[in-house]
């Protein structure tokens, strides 16, 4: 533990004062959101405003599920983010493994091709992707939402470095023992990169769950919208709802990830740190 010198005391007080102020600034809007979501509409509108209401009310949640298809949004988001994430975990690690540990012809050429797609931001290719999905009949379908997200160049790149870090003797011993290449991958190698899988899984889940522009573009029908894209239509610039239900909607959309964050904080941080892609 650091000893605090008395001469340094004002500096220390200032430092912690500023840090605590920052914590308050970061937490206040979130606490306000949760408190507001269980307030009565008239208490949200009252002046001067208060942080907490006088009584706990679930009306806003009942209203948001009643007036807009929140249940459908929630279901769509779970399907879209869940399946995309699981598929991407499988395909990214299969490819990452091939690039890291298997010998085959054309490896470098294929890898450069993969890296090329990593450098191009999604926003640049969204119009052709939209047209393509239109021609393939994928707009407003789960397949259309999920297919393009089933693998990512970044995930392949990341899993490749996890596999490359494993000792070489592992699969050689297994090969001598007559284990098939598929067996080596699923039974020996994949369990060894579990931290990598967790990190990448959280990365995909968080990005897909929170994505706005992509589902906005791939879906136009209400019944196919995700939480982010669905909510955005009813709030802010496009507000048609009471304030309370908007807050309840925001709570519903962030709560699942916040709960996961509490349990898997380490992986959330490492997924964001290693990717350099912010949500």
């Amino acid at each position: 533990m650091k000893k605090i010198k008395t001469g340094n005391l004002p500096g220390v007080v200032l430092k912690y004062g500023i840090l605590i102020l920052c914590i308050v600034l970061v937490l206040f809007p979130i606490v306000w959101l949760f408190a507001g979501s269980v307030k009565l509409e008239k208490e949200i509108l009252q002046y001067p405003p208060t942080l907490f209401g006088t009584k706990l009310s679930w009306k806003n949640f009942i209203r948001i599920f009643g007036t807009i298809p929140m249940g459908v949004y929630l279901k769509n988001t779970v399907i879209f983010a869940g399946i995309s994430t699981l598929a991407a975990l499988l395909f990214d690690s299969m490819s990452g493994y091939a690039f890291a540990r298997l010998r085959f012809k054309g490896k470098n050429l294929i890898f450069i091709g993969v890296l090329m797609t990593m450098m191009v931001p999604f926003q640049v290719m969204m119009i052709p992707l939209f047209l393509e999905s239109h021609f393939l009949g994928l707009l407003n379908t789960y397949a259309g939402l999920i297919l393009p997200k089933m693998t990512t160049a970044f995930g392949i790149f990341m899993m490749r470095s996890y596999f490359a870090a494993l000792p070489k003797e592992l699969e050689e011993a297994a090969r001598v023992d007559g284990v098939s290449e598929i067996g080596i991958f699923f039974k020996i190698m994949l369990p060894l990169v579990k931290p990598g899988l967790m990190t990448l899984g959280i990365f995909h889940l968080m990005n897909n769950w929170n994505d706005l522009l992509y589902p906005l573009m791939m879906t136009s029908e209400t019944r196919m919208r995700t939480l982010s894209a669905g909510l955005a239509l009813f709030v802010g610039e496009h507000a048609t709802l009471y304030y309370g239900p908007q807050l309840a909607g925001a709570v519903v959309s962030i709560l699942p990830l916040l709960v996961l964050y509490i349990f898997f904080q380490k992986y959330f941080v490492s997924s964001v740190v290693s990717s350099g892609i912010k949500g």
């Binding site: 979130i30 709030v235 962030i254 949500g279």
Partner: peptide
Amino acid sequence: SVFFVPVVCSMAAIGIVWSLLLDGTI
């Protein structure tokens, strides 16, 4: 841990919060 919480939240939700917190009348 606290400073990382907003990173996890969707911009759609954050937009709702800030729009209402900063609203000129309420």
